[in-house]
Design a binder for these strands. Structure first.
Lengths: 331, 331
DNA sequence: TGCGTCAGATTTACCGGTAACGTAGCCTGC
DNA sequence: GCAGGCTACGTTACCGGTAAATCTGACGCA
């Protein structure tokens, strides 16, 4: 890790500027010089210093920051994967962080990451602290907000409407004859997007004259256990619900497990609906009624929108991706 | 993003060196100067430039790189979470990448990331390309290998033995009276660690005189579908197996779903065992027989070992974490 | 009075690239 | 025969911090 352009330049009898040009594959040197420089760089085990390059050129480097709500979410794993593949192919490096559904943690993370002068950022959700918005606006940094749709993005956005997901599921369950619906969520107010789905759901029910009967919002992580115990709690208060909409598929599957343990027939005694489209949901124990979100696609689209912007190409600012309600056998 | 130390220095009537010291919380300035500088920095919206700092000081910065096999693995999501929390608390930034179980992709990623002069790296597994080992050794970079135990780490390691996991599960299933075992894996030769578990499993069975009857290795991602269809394939070849050990819990749950669909009683007609300890496995549809891996702990321990090294503290080079076989109701 | 000491601050050099510009030699066309 | 252009380079300045060395004035003290 010690050889630098100067060393290569000395060893090959040219100036370091020529070496720089050769290594970056530019032009302005002979075939012969190219081969010699490349050979010597290889021999010396030259490792470029992007720190110096990004700093010296004082231009956007190849660093992209991405902040997700939780690293342990299966859905975001797929989004990350989509982003990573798209960026990796284009030579960008990904810096990640988690904000735990907190706008303040997000701001703190952005303050850290921005000091590395990233070429752009990918954020989750459209709810940010005022400090964040200030910071980003006057840093003039390309930003893609993903996951939740916003009509007025800071810069660009790729997502869908969580509210509409809730509405759609509400309408679907009504069509299936459900009249006494409950909702089980998690993370309380912290998860703004989950709350949007709930609001959409409630709004569709209310409009049809069959308002939500009861809801249970847990303060745990939205996993299987939360779904299991959430349903237990909710049913102890309202035993006569005929369907429950869950915050996500993990919780719905937990709820399904509880229903089975309790001897309830699904969907006859109780309908169960989730959200997200985790792989397990399409198999076990029966096909879950849920909304499939194109996670990898969102990641890919976000990365591509960002890179297009960085290269000065004109792309669209708002990309709406389609979610898909799959009827399943539990709703 | 325009104010720099010089600007603050001018505005507060001191030199930029003094500003630097104040902002880094050192000493060698008066209380009065400190307050003035801090106030002006705030007013100008100063954002430090870590690129310049890391470059100029030519010392380990606060960047840590981490490479995982797949970003979509639930288990690695938890490892990442453990790493991120531990590092975030200590002011480090995390750069991630996926190697898709390929040593060559890993090397390519390392070549990229190393040019950012990270303070250290966290890699998954102990199998690396020769080029990788060279690169790391002469970069003298702190490296933590996680997930798979190695007795001769490049530098440090945090993990457990996959082989032993397989042995332990083999012995357990034998004790439960299983005699005709099958194995279902995925990713073919690419996943060295999954293969280690299979080898351990086979070795335990063979030693007891009840060797593995058959195995099915899929070339898909190790998910629910692969488990579902893998079991279908395996049973079509060997209908009389009395237990199947799966590559991981996702696949085992897929297998469980197939067994149910097929009308097989689990565990009476067929035992099913997984590996990994995903949350769903402990609930649905019955408690899965599996091995729980302390994912978050591994991430945390890896991050802490790395930081200890960076701070010059003496930590242990090899950290062995305990996995736990949970009997469950399916094996 | 002279001198050491110390807090508080400044000066200088440098990290490793890249952009912008300069230049020598050669070819080409009119 | 020479302006003009092209090729293949070299020179210089600079990015924004940090380490190390240096400076300065006030104070204590023999």
């Amino acid at each position: 890790m010690k050889a630098n352009l100067e060393d290569i330049a000395r060893a090959s009898g040219v100036s370091k500027m020529t070496v720089s040009r050769v290594l970056r594959g530019g032009s302005g040197f002979s075939e012969e010089t190219r081969d010699r420089v490349l050979g010597i760089a290889e021999k010396l085990g030259y490792v470029p210093n992007r720190l110096a390059a990004a700093f010296g050129a004082d231009q956007a480097g190849t660093l992209v920051g991405m902040c997700v709500p939780r690293l342990t979410s299966g859905l975001f794993g797929h989004v990350l994967d989509g982003v990573d593949r798209a960026l990796g192919r284009l030579g960008y490096q990904l810096m990640i962080g988690a904000n735990n559904h907190s706008a303040d943690e997000e701001e703190a993370w952005i303050r850290q990451v921005i000091s590395w002068r990233p070429a752009g950022l990918i954020l989750s959700g459209r709810h940010h602290s005022p400090g964040t918005v200030d910071l980003l606006r006057n840093a003039a940094l390309p930003v893609v907000e993903i996951w939740d749709l916003t009509t007025s993005p800071i810069d660009m956005s790729v997502g869908f409407s969580h509210f509409d997901c809730g509405v759609e599921m509400g309408q679907f369950l009504l069509r299936r004859g459900r009249r006494r619906a409950g909702y089980i969520g998690a993370l309380a107010r912290a998860d703004v997007m989950g709350a949007s789905r709930r609001e959409g759901f409630e709004s569709a029910l209310a409009r049809a004259g069959h308002p939500l009967i009861d809801r249970e919002i847990l303060h745990d992580a939205p996993g299987f256990y939360a779904g299991y115990y959430g349903l237990e709690t909710l049913l102890s208060r309202c035993p006569d619900l005929d369907v429950v909409y869950f915050h996500n598929d993990e919780m719905a599957i937990g709820g399904l497990a509880y229903a089975q343990a309790r001897g309830l027939r699904v969907p006859d005694d109780l309908g169960i609906a989730g959200w997200g489209g985790m792989e397990a949901a399409s198999i076990l124990p029966r096909r879950l009624t849920t909304t499939i979100v194109p996670t990898t696609l969102i990641g890919k689209a976000a990365a591509e929108a960002l890179v297009a912007r960085l290269r000065g190409e004109k792309g669209q600012d708002v990309t709406v991706v389609a979610t898909r309600l799959v009827p399943g056998e539990t709703g």
